[in-house]
Simulated scan of single mutants.
Amino acid sequence: MTRVIIDKALYRDGKRGSCGDLSDELDILRAAGSSTDFLWIGLKDPTMAELEHVNDELGLGLHPLAIEDAVSGRQRAKIELYGRNVFVVLKTLSYVEATSDIETGALMVHVGQHFVLTIRRGELSPLAGVRKGLEDDPAKLALGPMAALHAVMDRVVDQYTEIDVEVARDVDEIEEAVFSEGLVSSDTIYRLKREVLEFRRAITPLITPLRMLHTSPRSPVPDDELRLLFRDVDDHLHFVADRIESYDGLLTSVLSANLAKISVQQNSDMRKISAWVAIAAVPTMIAGIYGMNFDNMPELRWHYGYFIVVGVMVAACATLFATFKKVKWL
């Protein structure tokens, strides 16, 4: 069991205390502890057998479906109630500066009477800063296990806000490039649009269940102050979600504008090619006529025939060039 446990802590009256055997500590809390005292256990990439062993050993009472979802890691963001236990799935995100990609991880949180169990999948869900920040605020920590859940969700949503800034900058750069003199590869716009879609898939499913935590009579959050804190997280999530929707619409418009710009550029290129072909056709035609080798072609015997024909070629080409230049084909 110790292989998958990456952190553990006992919190009493808003302060972190020494933590001995997990099973014994949890039994003591259940027998005589305050309702806001709790044990916080952190796991990383547990197998089904390991998570079931932790559940049985500590008597957490996790629902089999919640255990299955926590192990698979391939779940949409959600909040589910299993009796007195709360199961939360969060999608953690990381922005890769070099490629403008958004990488996705998963973080599961089980909250029950006197315990918080966090399960990390992958490397994109660090919680050390969350614990430290919460431990520096004893008044909030004294609100119990739901305070830990709020701290985790608040940190994840703050990550969304940070990534939103990076994505907004990428969108602005592409928009500026499209409406400048140069051309932008459609692949670049499609790639960013795909990353925005990945961003939206991580956020959108969480909106409704998060609202439930601070508005619904079914909410497992017992404290009014905590409900206000969850409402603040909900506000930040809505802010990011609204901006993502605007990015998606803007990128669709930018893509259409870029395709139209490419089409106009191609039409311009075709006009130039056609104009030069027409100019080249005149001397080609004249040279072809006088290259047919008929006997009865008096111009071939004129003293100034060659100069006249060359002059006609130059004049015709110059006239066509001036005409095409006037109509902006060249």
Rank of each mutant, 00 (worst) to 15 (best):
T99A: 06
T99I: 09
T99P: 09
S100V: 02
S100Q: 12
D101K: 14
I102T: 01
I102G: 01
V109A: 12
V109K: 00
V109Q: 01
H110C: 14
V111Q: 06
G112P: 06
Q113N: 13
H114D: 13
F115D: 09
F115H: 04
L117V: 07
L117S: 02
L117N: 04
L117T: 03
L117Q: 05
I119W: 05
I119S: 08
R120Q: 15
R121W: 09
R121D: 09
G122D: 13
G122T: 00
E123S: 10
E123I: 00
L124E: 14
L124M: 12
L124P: 12
S125A: 15
P126H: 03
P126T: 00
L127T: 01
L127V: 01
A128T: 09
V130R: 03
R131D: 07
K132L: 10
G133H: 04
L134F: 13
L134E: 13
E135A: 14
E135Q: 10
D137W: 06
P138D: 12
P138M: 09
A139K: 15
K140S: 12
K140M: 15
L141K: 01
A142V: 01
L143C: 03
P145W: 04
P145H: 04
A147M: 06
A148W: 08
L149Y: 04
L149D: 03
L149M: 11
H150C: 02
A151W: 04
A151P: 03
V152S: 03
V152R: 01
R155N: 11
V156Y: 05
V156Q: 02
V157Q: 03
V157F: 05
D158I: 00
Y160T: 09
Y160L: 05
I163G: 03
I163F: 09
V165N: 05
V165H: 13
V165Y: 13
V165W: 08
E166S: 13
V167W: 04
A168K: 11
R169Y: 12
V171Q: 07
V171L: 15
D172R: 08
D172K: 12
E173H: 07
I174V: 13
I174C: 06
E176C: 02
F179G: 01
S180M: 09
S180L: 11
E181T: 08
E181K: 05
G182R: 11
L183K: 02
L183D: 07
V184E: 08
S185A: 07
D187I: 14
T188S: 07
T188C: 02
I189A: 09
I189V: 13
Y190F: 15
R191M: 10
L192T: 00
K193F: 13
R194W: 15
R194S: 11
R194K: 15
E195V: 05
E195K: 08
V196P: 02
V196D: 02
E198N: 02
E198F: 15
F199S: 00
F199T: 00
F199M: 11
R200N: 10
R200I: 08
R200K: 14
A202F: 11
A202V: 02
T204I: 10
